[in-house]
Design a protein around this nucleic acid. Structure first.
Lengths: 188, 188
DNA sequence: ACCTGAACACCGTTCAAGT
DNA sequence: ACCTGAACACCGTTCAAGT
């Protein structure tokens, strides 16, 4: 912990951790204050209210995700490898990342969350679709396969926290699973 | 009010009214008790906890809806007229019925609500599909049109409370709208 | 059988006062 | 600039005691 005093970023980070553990309901001012070792009153110095924290947290997540895709996936030249890299991302070393996305997907009814989830999904569809086009599929086929791929990606996140036994967990089985999935989706 | 003493049914009825006005969050023990002119402690005589009330309320709604369809729609001989009757049901005189369905649709993420909404949707699809088959469409076309019709039906409920201006409100415009919609959906 | 009243826990929000 | 501490409102849940 570098500085005693906290900023909005610290609250967002704590909110993301709580989100991963207990879903949207766990993003509650009092428990977060306890976790940060600070009185809940101090929260209101940084944010207008709980909704403002949720909004900022969603935004934080969306930016981080976009940046990660830009840095770790977009630059992969081979489109098949790019797809595999994306899917492998669904099994990030820390379960955390996946659980956060799952929590946001589960809470997509919330008007603070819905627009960000929509945007993220739309972007994912766009670059999935582009990858399939590079592989030689026509526009229609590319869109169709991108839809399936996007669904599978999100579905893996959700299953990972609703039905963990159904999803591969060890690094060997993950690699195998990702290879099979990529094969299936790129087959003619 | 026939009897001073209340039963579970009275709490469900109050819960449905609250649901129509303020969504799932408005189904709260304390406000309902106030509305019923009773202490909130008495609630726990009838129900284990708030979740039990929500579950019972969902069940109450599902049964009432099923019964209404059986009594007011299923017996209409002409399939076109039956479709029109269904759509007209989406504009029931009291806004209440529509708002309750909209609230349940909005809360379909809730595990207490999801199964009932799924069942209601499935049944609706089934008898819509049957109506289209009676009109001479083949199985595939019937299913497709039933999907569109079901979507439109639910969409009307949702829009009615998210975007009321976009939905007809006076009885004349409603009849016209329903006629147009039925025409569109049964066109070859 | 159904209800009251008081209690407790938990959370959101405000605000004067501290450093 | 950031935080504390106390206060208030609101809701869920329990339970002994009433009728």
């Amino acid at each position: 912990v570098p500085n005693q005093r906290l900023g909005p970023g610290d609250w967002c980070q704590a909110a993301l951790a709580a989100l991963a553990e207990g879903g949207l309901d766990a993003v509650a001012v009092e428990p977060l204050a306890k976790r940060l070792g600070v009185s809940k009153g101090s929260f209101y110095w940084h944010f207008k209210d709980r909704d403002a924290l949720v909004a900022a947290t969603v935004s934080h997540w969306e930016n981080a995700l976009t940046a990660e895709v830009k840095n770790r996936i977009a630059h992969v030249a081979d489109p098949r490898e790019r797809l595999a890299a994306l899917f492998r991302g669904a099994f990030g070393r820390r379960v955390e990342a996946g659980q956060i996305e799952a929590a946001f997907v589960a809470g997509r009814e919330n008007p603070l969350i819905a627009p960000a989830v929509r945007r993220v999904t739309k972007r994912r569809m766009a670059y999935l679709s582009a990858a399939f086009r590079e592989l030689g599929f026509n526009e229609h086929e590319a869109r169709h396969r991108a839809t399936v791929a996007s669904g599978a990606y999100v579905g893996l996140f959700v299953m990972r926290h609703t039905n963990p036994a159904a999803v591969p967990a060890r690094s060997g089985t993950i690699d195998e699973f990702v290879a099979d999935l990529t094969d299936l989706l790129t087959r003619r």
